[in-house]
């Protein structure tokens, strides 16, 4: 896993980056009724957008438990996108209103903990907005590209100069233990 040195700015450029070692992994949770249909429309309309996104279809954005988002990061995602119907359009009338509160709070919480805000995105995309969908995806991919690979759950490497003191250094007790397990996880999480 290597960090790319010069990060491309434009999404057109991104498509040319196939030979680069690192491609972002982005998990997208789409509601069945609007955003998924919107993505489908983008496909049938032959709109091109960045392919680094992995779509998981859910019944409603209200179904997206904040744990899904956290778990995605734990399992190796570099970014997460959640998309649902515009307010007022929810198939279940109010699901996205409830979801909106949860997302607002989750976003604040994990950004407070120090998560890069470029990694977590929310959008409203209706079934008619195929072009908006492609724009959203390109923006998200761009942002995650700029944020780089997510290494927040790798064991921190503290140099002596780091202001924050070395923690109860579990890695040193069982020497290769953590390096070993994290390596294993990242091998399964990422190609």
């Amino acid at each position: 896993m290597k960090k790319i040195k010069d990060k491309p700015q434009e999404s057109e450029d991104l498509l040319l980056e196939k030979d680069r070692l690192w491609q972002p992994r982005i998990v997208a949770f789409l509601c069945n009724w609007c955003s998924y249909a919107g993505a489908d429309l983008a496909g049938t309309s032959r709109i091109k957008y960045n392919p680094q996104i992995r779509i998981i279809r859910v019944p409603c954005s209200g179904r997206v438990n904040p744990l899904f988002i956290l778990r995605a990061f734990i399992d190796g995602a570099d970014g997460v996108l959640v998309s649902g119907c515009h307010p007022g359009d929810c198939h279940y009338s109010t699901g996205n209103y409830f979801a909106r509160r949860k997302f607002a709070l989750l976003k604040r919480l994990i950004e407070f903990c120090g998560m890069d805000e470029r990694r977590i995105h929310f959008s409203w995309v209706s079934a008619a907005e195929g072009s908006k969908w492609s724009q959203v995806v390109n923006d998200v991919v761009n942002a995650v590209y700029q944020a780089g690979p997510f290494t927040g759950f790798d064991l921190p490497v503290f140099s002596k100069e780091t202001e924050i003191e070395t923690p109860a250094d579990l890695c040193k007790q069982g020497p290769e233990r953590f390096a070993y397990s994290i390596d294993l996880m990242s091998r399964t999480g990422k190609k």
Partner: peptide, 8 residues
């Protein structure tokens, strides 16, 4: 704890 095809 396993993810995908490997775990421990």
């Amino acid at each position: 704890e396993s993810r995908g095809y490997a775990g421990e």
